[in-house]
Design a protein around this nucleic acid. Structure first.
Lengths: 232, 232
DNA sequence: ACCTGAACACCGTTCAAGT
DNA sequence: ACCTGAACACCGTTCAAGT
């Protein structure tokens, strides 16, 4: 007789791929890429290293899978609004990525790496599809779809990473104090540059200090969208 | 008596910072970031590991210094053409970076990292200054200089990294065969996507295959420049 | 000042062995 | 199938010691 319990054939599965990924994301959120070590994973999960390799794979695959998980969630959280203007949909997707990176600062580097070196991967495909459709809806001629979408995606990624500038191996969210300190240090360095050879840096030093990240991000998108409008 | 020879106080200096950086760049060019190990450096230079730390610093500083060296050389090779149109100067700077990355594929990742997490560093400053001046010359109002320049730089970096997509830990230049193989694999993957959920990817699959990297890059810049023109 | 190189404290990954 | 954890082959970095 086979009872219901042993049907699934996997007796004591105590660890799932999802749990492994959750642990990885927690580690990354709390201490950046440097905090994601196989040993830290085994401690947090109370397992051997083989368990991690069994459920997900190498450290690199772990990083990629964590990235995919978060990007998928971020995009799913802002589903396509039927009837919305294409510009609005593009902004929604861009801001979804922007916010995801604000919450998971390690994502800035990883997202760029994924799109740059894995154009066949789910992250690239998902982002391109979401943005690309709107480029069509915007009236850009079909022959320019690829160029136009690439330009937008490149801009979004570049900007989104830039704004997560405090990323890397530091923990937690950047406090307002951190932010102010950072910009104070930055404007000091820029002001110390030779005024003759770096007139432009001197000219923008105050704008850099006062700008709002999100606002600047949207302003940049508006610039690119204006450029795309000319393709019609 | 002091002879001329011992005046510089440094007797037997057999290694220079420049030699250390040259070795690092050769290693990076031949095998990507993975090939740059301290041990490989000591073998190539026939020294102890301390010598590397003495002349440059940690592995990370080595990577940064190598990046600075190449970016500085790339920008210096295309000096500002007095009298040239600002659009042309922007294209020149962008292509200088594009070509530098084509020659040193590991630079794609590193350049992005530098600009993203080290806005006070020489690489960021140099690129911003070169591009920013032209934004002013383009007639963009002063209040938008920072935004406009950031947008351009973000686009350039994003695109330039994307086009170096075969980077990473592989060696040498990508051959035409590599390139074709790569795009065949890519279009196969894209075609395998569900046509209902990914109509856009299906629509662009041929454009992606046939596009010219450099041409697309310039087309993207033209789009952003068109957008900037609206700010006047 | 410039450099050596052993020693240290980590890594990621594999794999025989267990259940 | 799922998991353990010792063993392996690497890392980057430091630092006493040499010249």
């Amino acid at each position: 007789m086979t009872t219901r319990a042993d049907r699934p054939r996997r007796r004591n599965q105590v660890l799932s791929r999802e749990q492994v990924l959750d642990a990885a994301i927690e580690l990354l959120d709390s201490g950046g890429e440097g905090a994601l070590t196989v040993r830290a994973m085994t401690e947090r999960l109370a397992t051997g290293s083989g368990a991690v390799y069994h459920h997900v794979g190498t450290r690199n695959e772990l990083l990629d899978a964590a990235t995919e998980t978060i990007v998928a969630a971020a995009l799913a959280a802002k589903p396509h609004q039927t009837g919305a203007a294409p510009e609005q949909e593009i902004r929604a997707v861009a801001l979804a990525l922007f916010d995801a990176i604000a919450e998971h600062r390690w994502l800035a580097t990883r997202l760029t790496l994924q799109i740059v070196r894995n154009p066949a991967g789910p992250v690239t495909v998902e982002v391109f599809e979401r943005i690309g459709r709107q480029v069509g809806a915007l009236g850009v001629p079909r022959a320019s779809w690829f160029n136009a979408t690439s330009t937008l995606v490149h801009y979004i990624l570049g900007a989104v990473s830039q704004h997560a500038r405090l990323d890397g191996d530091t923990a937690g969210e950047p406090s307002d104090v951190d932010r102010e300190e950072f910009f104070n240090a930055l404007s000091t360095t820029w002001r110390e540059l030779d005024a003759e050879t770096y007139p432009f840096m001197h000219a923008i030093v105050d704008q850099a200090k006062e700008h709002d990240d999100r606002e600047q991000f949207l302003a940049g998108i508006a610039i690119v969208l204006d450029g795309l409008a000319r393709l019609r």
